[in-house]
Simulated scan of single mutants.
Amino acid sequence: MTGRVLITAGASGVGRAMAEAFDAAGAQVWVADVDAAALQACPDHWGRSQVDVSDEAAVAALFAEIAAQWGGLDVLCANAGIAGPTALVEDVALSDWQKCISVNLDGAFLCAKYAAPMLKRQGRGAVLITSSTAGQYGYPNRAPYAAAKWAVIGLGKTLAMELGPHGVRCNVICPGAVEGPRMEGVLQREATAKGMTRDQVYQGYAAGTSMGRFVEAHDIAAMAVFLASDAARLVSGQVIAVDGHTVNPDPKL
């Protein structure tokens, strides 16, 4: 595919896999991330910006730079997110709740806010928001994360309605448990919170899917490239899980 693609949290994990997949498909890639070292490790031909997506001034500056360098945007992958605290709701500090909501929800909103005028002006494009299966089912001990990921689904469906008349599509991708460093942190925290071992929690997640396994970052990236392509030209307003089919969202042995 051709086109100009912005991926937030694009320097590592799922975002990096998305960036590599879009690059391999022939797109121009710009990654935004808070991690300066991870950005430095990205290919030189990618656009790169250190950005906190919960900071409106920083997001506005990012889109102004993209407009100046590229003259527009074809695909926004609003992928930035954090896991938030692992605790029962009564033990969650308001500050931790607010930080999780700020990155996961406010960040997606701010990127959509500044991308929408660019996409509408050219009369085409796609917005992809990364949610989670936690945004479809809820998840115990993860109230801030689940709440934010439910909320971005509502944001995505609303964007599909607002942008559709301008030729712009919006879809939401819900990854399940994704192999990688971020999920390792979740596994360790849940093991502590539930009095289980890391391996027990891991096996519980895998057993909670009909396919009995975790997904990998490239699985999410492949879906993103498809949804941004002309092959999905009439796919909009959809919430698509890439999770091996979650059948039990609360993994317990």
Rank of each mutant, 00 (worst) to 15 (best):
residue 108 A to N: 11
residue 8 T to M: 12
residue 246 T to W: 02
residue 33 D to G: 03
residue 249 P to N: 12
residue 177 A to I: 01
residue 175 P to N: 10
residue 166 H to K: 09
residue 215 V to T: 15
residue 148 A to L: 11
residue 53 V to F: 03
residue 224 A to E: 11
residue 40 Q to K: 14
residue 129 I to H: 07
residue 76 L to I: 07
residue 205 Y to V: 13
residue 174 C to T: 10
residue 252 K to Y: 12
residue 21 A to H: 09
residue 226 F to R: 04
residue 150 W to H: 15
residue 155 L to G: 08
residue 31 V to T: 09
residue 138 G to A: 08
residue 190 E to H: 14
residue 177 A to Y: 03
residue 57 A to E: 14
residue 146 A to P: 00
residue 42 C to R: 08
residue 88 L to D: 15
residue 224 A to H: 06
residue 167 G to F: 06
residue 163 L to Q: 07
residue 77 C to D: 10
residue 149 K to V: 04
residue 56 E to W: 04
residue 251 P to I: 03
residue 197 T to L: 06
residue 15 G to I: 00
residue 103 V to P: 07
residue 148 A to D: 01
residue 147 A to G: 05
residue 240 I to F: 09
residue 89 V to E: 00
residue 185 G to H: 12
residue 180 G to N: 05
residue 59 V to P: 00
residue 72 G to F: 01
residue 195 G to D: 05
residue 233 R to Q: 15
residue 74 D to F: 05
residue 9 A to E: 13
residue 38 A to Y: 04
residue 94 L to F: 14
residue 242 V to E: 13
residue 129 I to G: 06
residue 83 A to C: 02
residue 62 L to F: 15
residue 91 D to F: 05
residue 30 W to A: 06
residue 43 P to N: 10
residue 219 D to F: 03
residue 16 R to F: 08
residue 30 W to V: 15
residue 149 K to N: 07
residue 247 V to R: 11
residue 147 A to R: 05
residue 225 V to W: 09
residue 162 E to V: 05
residue 1 M to A: 14
residue 15 G to P: 05
residue 31 V to Y: 09
residue 137 Y to D: 12
residue 228 A to C: 11
residue 184 E to A: 14
residue 181 P to L: 08
residue 140 P to T: 13
residue 136 Q to M: 15
residue 29 V to R: 00
residue 68 A to Y: 01
residue 85 P to V: 00
residue 56 E to S: 07
residue 113 K to M: 06
residue 59 V to W: 11
residue 19 A to F: 08
residue 195 G to F: 11
residue 76 L to H: 03
residue 102 S to K: 00
residue 223 M to R: 01
residue 39 L to Y: 11
residue 71 G to S: 02
residue 23 D to R: 01
residue 34 V to R: 15
residue 57 A to I: 02
residue 21 A to N: 06
residue 253 L to W: 12
residue 64 A to G: 15
residue 170 C to N: 04
residue 144 P to N: 01
residue 239 V to L: 14
residue 164 G to A: 11
residue 232 A to S: 12
residue 104 N to E: 09
residue 32 A to R: 02
residue 190 E to Q: 13
residue 107 G to W: 09
residue 190 E to T: 09
residue 186 V to A: 13
residue 3 G to Q: 10
residue 72 G to M: 02
residue 67 A to G: 15
residue 24 A to Q: 15
residue 111 C to A: 09
residue 109 F to K: 08
residue 226 F to C: 10
residue 119 L to W: 08
residue 236 S to Y: 08
residue 235 V to R: 01
residue 186 V to P: 05
residue 4 R to L: 03
residue 251 P to N: 10
residue 212 G to H: 07
residue 21 A to V: 08
residue 44 D to H: 12
residue 156 G to S: 12
residue 102 S to T: 00
residue 66 I to R: 02
residue 59 V to A: 04
residue 102 S to R: 11
residue 135 G to Y: 02
residue 152 V to W: 01
residue 40 Q to N: 13
residue 63 F to E: 02
residue 1 M to H: 13
residue 233 R to L: 01
residue 178 V to I: 15
residue 232 A to V: 10
residue 192 T to N: 10
residue 173 I to P: 05
